[in-house]
Design a protein around this nucleic acid. Structure first.
Lengths: 195, 195
DNA sequence: GTCTATAAGTAGATAGAC
DNA sequence: GTCTATCTACTTATAGAC
């Protein structure tokens, strides 16, 4: 159990990521310096390079981790059932998941342009896989005559934009609980795609 | 008509703004240097300060100009009528206006955090005034029994988020024209708030 | 693993010549 | 109005001591 004084790698690594996440979300990737991140953790700038090869990798790791956990959670959560039930489930899942991680959501939508082209492709691919989940539900429901959407792909993007928008205004101290918000949005989604 | 060689202020000023708009939208405010902007216009960095007192004012001017022109255009465009007609009009106006200015839209949503607190308050105030336009329509329609929304404020923000999302995927060379896109979204908005 | 020190380059903004 | 030159400060990243 005894450790040499500086050997904090297992705890320091996550603290670096947490500090970067918070600062990138608040001020933007380009506006945050490695010194600021280090300062937040109580390190000198040079020490950060024990945890990341460079600043870009730090950003990519945060975004990749977010998308992976989104897809994992979604895979675990989809219980199947009829398209209407699946759509309600997707709606509530999306809102809950995104409201639980405002900083990661913010970064994943705002910092795409600061990724290298290769890293951008990876994140875009994961994002498309998530969109495909919803598109599959809408397509299945439309085929069964349960939904009426003029354009499945556009409807998919419209619903996701509407739901993700909740992160821009929701405050925990506000007048609505998360389940209440879920219900309000589900009511609108349900009607928007209804036959 | 004859001018001294360097006297291009009337034409150079707008070119500086246009270059800043384009570069801020592509790479982000913090990632763009005054030297890059100057280079785009064919100037040296120092010459930019004939057109803006500093970089922050350049950003604020772009965002303020965008919001002013949004509110102006909206004021000109609202023809009145019953709530359903006004809502359709708002929907089509919002999509058209935003698709015509992708760079300004992008900046106005992404660079809020790079404004000084005072400048942020100004832009936020204008944004709220625009939201109030839609909220008024929804409230009027709900009172008349034409709409059924569980929460008018949330519905306002949900509709705006859905509509603005069109700017993230629409491409002029794509398979849909702007009027087609307007109709697809109007169909969803109409149903989402329907009684 | 963290430190100090440093390399090599860029940032916003200003001064003064023309 | 634009240029060159410059100030001051800050940037990412690395080297080597401990």
């Amino acid at each position: 159990m005894a450790r040499t004084q500086g050997s904090h790698s297992e705890i320091t690594g996550p603290r670096v990521e947490a500090a970067a996440l918070r600062l990138f979300a608040r001020h933007g990737f380009a506006a945050v310096s490695m010194r600021q991140i280090a300062g937040e953790v109580g390190l000198q700038a040079g020490a950060l390079y024990n945890y990341t090869p460079d600043k870009q990798s730090l950003l990519f790791g945060l975004m990749k981790g977010h998308m992976d956990s989104l897809l994992d959670a979604r895979a675990q959560a989809d219980k199947g059932g009829d398209p209407v039930a699946r759509l309600e489930h997707f709606t509530r899942f999306h809102i809950r998941f995104h409201l639980e991680r405002p900083d990661a959501v913010f970064i994943s939508y705002m910092e795409l342009r600061n990724l290298t082209p290769e890293n951008f492709e990876v994140i875009e691919g994961l994002r498309r896989r998530y969109e495909d989940e919803l598109e599959g539900i809408l397509r299945e429901g439309a085929a069964a005559g349960l939904f009426d959407v003029a354009d499945t792909k556009v409807a998919t993007l419209a619903v996701i934009a509407m739901l993700t928008g909740v992160t821009t205004w929701y405050r925990q101290e506000g007048r609505l609980t998360v389940p209440e918000v879920e219900t309000i949005y589900w009511d609108m989604v349900r009607k928007a795609v209804a036959a």
